[in-house]
Design a protein around this nucleic acid. Structure first.
Length: 374
RNA sequence: UGGGGUGUCGCCAAGCGGCUAAGGCCCCGGAUUUUGAUUCCGGUAUCCGCAGGUUCGAAUCCUGCCACCCCAG
């Protein structure tokens, strides 16, 4: 084992508190830390608030304060080619992709990791809320949930492999968000009180629909009920996701129940958005199929096993049974699940350990959607 | 231009002579959130198709007009 001061660590810094504190912690532990800001999106319109420049400035301030070198790298081309193109293709196919999972697989833990290794780093680090555990008996790394269950980000890391995790460090994974802010405050880091960022990583917080419209032209059509009654118009199927309520602009209708309307399906062929008043059986499913699954350990624990799963980020875990078939899995839910959506990831957990996951391809509905009268 | 019915917030919809005109949906604002989804808070008609009248007092009663719907022609 090398001395910490001989261990070179390249830390991905976003300009937020978490990676700022990660830098501070690594520095205090004596590592040879370098902060790197990733500039992965190039504004094509002047519309979105360009927070990237501010974020980079925050990285600079924090690194100066801590006394570590910092650099900026640009992976815009890689992001566009490996993440954004997939993102658009998925939307065009009527699915709801999760670009941030892919961003971790392709950019932060591939392009960035490769760069770190190329400059002679021993490890790369990020400000993700997650923990790693070396299982010596099996000689493998386990990905564990963050100590702060509320901020856990293992969902976004479920696509990573042993080769990637072996070289990763998550310095803030053992801390609570409150502690992070406290540490940042005590160290006088400029990001101590900075609001947590939301939105798609790199693309940031902006009018999502308008953003998508720049790349996928609107194709308006009808919103219909299961009985084929037209109750509104949609701007294009790609702007909606299963289970969505807001933005449908459907008020009360005669003989209606007075409940809210939800998206329950899409008829791509006829360009129809299928909606339903209230949350009924059609919104729930009993299972799903994911054709491409990544098991962090390299292999599934068994051919068939019980565990828990999330179908969207920040959902509570649901008990499920998994059956491996080929490179994919069939998942059976113990209880019907609401709005399980193709394109989103199913991520499996066993206790604290994240086993892996993959994009959802198909669901097994509680009640099949049959359009009549159209 | 015979008969009947209806007109209350963007949409449904309570109210049928007396507190500052329910409620739901949509919408807007905020909280939560590295997927603008979900969820959670908060906000939104001084005014009831229009104009008169009756009354201490009307969205609620009366008269006229206008609009829409249905039946009959």
């Amino acid at each position: 084992m090398k001395n910490p001061c001989d261990m070179k660590i390249i830390l991905g810094m976003s300009g937020g508190v978490d990676s700022s504190v990660a830098a501070l912690l690594l520095k205090r532990q004596g590592f040879d830390v370098t902060g790197v800001f990733m500039d992965n999106w190039e504004e094509s319109d002047g519309e979105g608030v360009c927070t990237a420049a501010e974020d980079r400035e925050d990285v600079r301030r924090v690194c100066d304060k801590i006394g570590i070198p910092y650099y900026t790298v640009n992976f815009a081309r890689e992001y566009r080619e490996r993440v954004f193109s997939y993102f658009l293709a998925e939307y065009a196919a009527g699915r709801t992709p999760n670009p941030d999972v892919l961003c971790n697989c392709e950019i932060k833990f591939k392009a960035f990791l490769d760069l770190a290794m190329a400059v002679g780093a021993d490890f790369m680090a990020t400000g993700h809320y997650a923990r790693l555990d070396l299982d010596k008996s099996q000689n493998r790394v386990r990905l564990l949930r963050a100590r702060d269950a509320n901020k856990d980000q293992t969902y976004f890391l479920a696509g990573l492999t042993q080769a990637q995790l072996e070289r990763a460090m998550f310095p803030v994974g053992t801390l609570e968000k409150g502690e992070i802010r406290k540490i940042a405050g005590e160290a006088n880091l400029s990001t101590a009180l900075k609001k947590d960022s939301t939105g798609i990583c790199f693309i940031g917080e902006r009018n999502f629909k308008r953003f998508l419209m720049q790349y996928l032209p609107a194709q308006p059509g009808d919103m219909v009920t299961l009985e084929g009654r037209a109750v509104g118009r949609h701007d294009g199927l790609m702007y909606y996701t299963i289970g969505q309520r807001r933005g449908l602009k459907i008020g009360g209708i005669r003989e209606g129940s007075g409940e809210s309307w939800f998206v329950v399906g899409k008829d791509i062929k006829r360009n129809l958005l299928i909606v339903q008043q209230g949350e009924r059986e059609e919104l729930f499913s009993l299972g799903l199929y994911a054709n491409k699954i990544n098991f962090i350990a390299g292999d599934p624990p068994e051919k068939s096993f019980a565990c828990t799963a999330k179908f969207r980020y920040r959902q509570a875990d649901s008990p499920v049974r998994v059956t491996v078939c080929g490179g994919g899995i069939a998942v059976d839910f113990d209880r019907p699940e609401r709005a399980v959506t193709p394109g989103q990831w199913v991520v499996l957990y066993r206790g604290e350990e994240c086993l892996g996951g993959g994009p959802i391809d198909e669901t097994r509905p509680l009640k099949k959607i049959v359009l009549t009268g159209v």
